[in-house]
Amino acid sequence: MGVHQKLIIADRIAIPVTMIFGDPSQYGGTAVLLAGIGYGIQVYADFSGGMDIARGFSQIIGIDLELNFTQPYFSVSVENFWRRWHITLGAFMRDYVFYPLSLSKFFNAIGKKSRKLIGDFAGKKVAPFIAMFLVYFLVGFWHGAEWKYIVYGIWNGVFIAGSILLVDVYAKIKRFLHIHEDRFLWRLFQIIRTFLIISFGRLFSRALNVSTAFSMIRSIFTRFTDFAYLEGNGTMTLGLDKWNWIVLLLGILLILIVDIQHEKGFSMRDRIAKQNVVFRVLLVSLAITAIAVIGVYGPGFDSAGFIYQQF
């Protein structure tokens, strides 16, 4: 599955994503938004695909590596996302930065002082907020020593802080709109909202610099219906022909189905393992053939390189 994610999805979607991020001003808002979403899919397929390959090889030699992703794009909030995405980094930051800082004497003193100054509700949050922003600053910095990565990290911190501070406001809005939290449509809304927030944040990490990222976001809102770039200059295919787009969309659909099963608590691997040997051999042969035939590799493709190698 990891090889499928890497060679069929990540390396294929990288082509249009690279094209749009290379010169975003040439494209309309829809293309820029799709590039942001596409980059999110690319990073997930690349990174979690790489992790799956590493976990698979480790299991062959008897080592069980921890899961690093638990269907992150089904997260219902940004905070929830960071508990499902790159879990080992999040756990490291929590245990070695957030907790020690929040419980330190210095931060305790900040907490007491801020409660006196601005009251109990907001005052209690000042010290953990400072610790949290430092965590997201470090998460950004960990990706690279550039402002765009720092902004990417802080972007996430801002939304988490907002959701904590505005918890009562959200509760009132939900009551007013008669929203039931256990309804599927509400959960779907939360998932799409979180995915978009994360995708917008990713524009910062992938764009050339911070100002380009801001102009890309502006373009999504101001040039959303600008489709002039589609007119007969060949860019409509964005580097992939019709067949490759179909393969890409089917590949994404497969990952989506697998992730939905995992989200429901079913293990695809256990299910396959329970099938008879003929079925399993056929399935593995089909998977290998699919990767060999429709995987993106060969001259001109950097199939050996993983995005997270550079971080």
């Binding site: 905070e79 508990r83 419980l103 209690k124 953990p128 904590i164």
Partner: peptide, 29 residues
């Protein structure tokens, strides 16, 4: 089951430290 997040833990620890006059350390988390 991730019912409590790290913010809840810090809030709980802060309240417990103050209310019971104890000092919950990082190692206790």
């Amino acid at each position: 089951d991730s019912i409590l997040d790290s913010f809840d833990i810090i809030s709980i620890v802060g309240e417990l430290n103050e209310h019971y006059d104890i000092e919950i350390d990082v190692e206790d988390l």
